[in-house]
Amino acid sequence: MSVSIQLKGLARWYGRVVGLIEADLQFASGVTGILGPNGAGKSTLLNLVTGQIRPSRGSVLIDGQTIWNQPALYGRIGFCPEGDRFYWTMTGLQFVTELTALHGFSRHEAEAKARRCLSKLGMSDSMHRRINTYSKGMRQRTKFAQALAHDPDILVLDEPLTGTDPQGRRLLIDEITTLGESGKTVLVSSHILHEIEAMTDQVVVVHQGRIRASGSVSEIRNLLDHFPMQIRISGDNLRPLAQALLSIEDVVSTELHQNGRQLFVKTRQASSVYRVLPELICSLQIIVEEIEGEDSSLEAVFDYLMAGVSARLRGSLR
């Protein structure tokens, strides 16, 4: 069943700190990405949408009804929060079962739903283990399962892909995409553009507590293409890799630190570097411990986006 979420003049302050301000938006069925750097106001927006916090001004309407303190509406929402929030000594199955039973299902029904959902997310073998023995990726999938098990119309997912392994990530992305296609209203927050891009083309950009733009990912991607992103690679003797990467057209510069154990790559197209990296690492026979997109540069990306092209974005994307 398709559900509309409407934000009307929504604002939220934490004392004198602005969490979110002047948010007027409408979310229809399908997947919408909420994009913004850490501390931009994404979680505040999602907490307001799920009725967990009271707006300081304005309102959130789910099919025309205010959400705050309306338990009857909460049954239509599935929420996957950011970070580790668990009853750690429960098993994955117990956790999802009890949280599903909270939606008014008998324990038997809830357990059947929980089993189905966890199995679908590749947790068949590990659902009987305690959560405190799970890997980060398994914990993410367990959180996702509790949001999904009662078959809600609205799914609100706060950074659902954080810490997931490539296989788990693929699984979650496929599941989110399928849910969106089935007519559910899915809101997914992330501070990584290519994560959002893998799930949807519809995006809302939040920065410094304001909705800066809403529209298609491709337009934002075009703007970002001109901004150098930084990738940090850690490993042994990375000098040959640094030289090899300089031959890629989009790479602006490479910098070696810690006696060649850390390499910073600046690129206009992070995806083109990610594409060639595995092949280069194999051919040069280099041991790589970690590859990470630098978060600090992401903040800069948003500053860049907002400062220079804010007006253009509003005009073209809204």
């Binding site: 909460y74 929030r85 939606h103």
Partner: peptide, 15 residues
């Protein structure tokens, strides 16, 4: 502290 209260509050059960 364990940030699990949200799970309970976001269910169709009166507070």
């Amino acid at each position: 502290d364990q940030r699990t209260l949200g799970y309970l509050l976001l269910r169709p059960t009166p507070r």
